[in-house]
């Protein structure tokens, strides 16, 4: 451990306090701090927001152009993605950014990328890159590739984008809100039926 344990504990407690102060805000987004939270970890439950969507074809008829079928998506309100647990590790915080791993809300098992939700950062029309990636070169676990997350700042490809550049302007509350936005608020799970299989894709849409 690089940070004095007393200092680290004080900073951990401070982050907990801020989350508690904003409990109403978090709960309005169905983000809940779990009782498994214990130093140096903070466990939060994230509940999906948007129902699964299924595709359907509609026909638009124009006066000159022949009818062109287009794909539209309809909500299946009885189905949604699964809730998940986000475990933040504040060891060495805030010399190092919080580490984040994803766990099953029921069993506490680490989530496996092929069957996980997806997270996307909306950047503009037609541009919403995946920010939940499969295999971190050091941890070999799925990781969230956003500033404020240890796995981002300590990824070899981001060596110039140090956490210390952001630690004065990012804290756990803002990081939690970012995680919620890219993994719950802006993404819609959609079923895509193909010849002999079904795929789940995650569409991202900014709220304006």
């Amino acid at each position: 451990m690089q940070v004095d344990p007393e200092v680290n504990r004080a900073k951990y407690d401070r982050e907990i306090s801020l989350l508690v102060e904003q409990q109403t805000t978090l709960e309005s987004r169905l983000i809940f701090m779990l009782s498994s939270t214990a130093y140096p970890h903070i466990d939060l439950l994230f509940v999906p927001r948007h129902p699964v969507q299924i595709p359907g074809l509609t026909t638009q008829v124009g006066s000159i152009i022949l009818a062109q079928p287009t794909v539209t998506f309809t909500d299946l309100p009885m189905f949604a993605g699964r809730a998940f647990k986000a475990r933040f590790d504040l060891t060495d915080y805030d010399l190092r950014a919080p580490s984040l791993e994803f766990r099953d809300a029921w069993t506490d098992a680490e989530l496996q990328y092929p069957t996980m939700f997806r997270a996307r950062q909306f950047e503009g029309p037609g541009r919403a890159p995946d920010v939940l990636l499969a295999d971190h070169p050091t941890t070999h676990k799925p990781f969230l590739c956003l500033r404020g997350i240890r796995e981002y700042h300590e990824h070899p490809q981001h060596s110039g984008d140090e956490w210390l550049l952001y630690r004065e302007t990012l804290n756990l509350f803002s990081i939690v809100m970012s995680l919620w936005r890219v993994s719950v608020d802006l993404v819609h799970p959609q079923l895509n039926f193909q010849m002999n299989r079904m795929q789940v894709q995650w569409a991202a849409e900014e709220k304006l």
């Binding site: 950047e123 920010v131 590739c145 500033r147 404020g148 984008d161 803002s174 990081i175 809100m177 970012s178």
Partner: peptide, 11 residues
């Protein structure tokens, strides 16, 4: 209003 730093897409 929630004022936050853009965290960008690491990718």
């Amino acid at each position: 209003l929630f004022l936050s730093l853009r965290v960008g897409a690491g990718g």
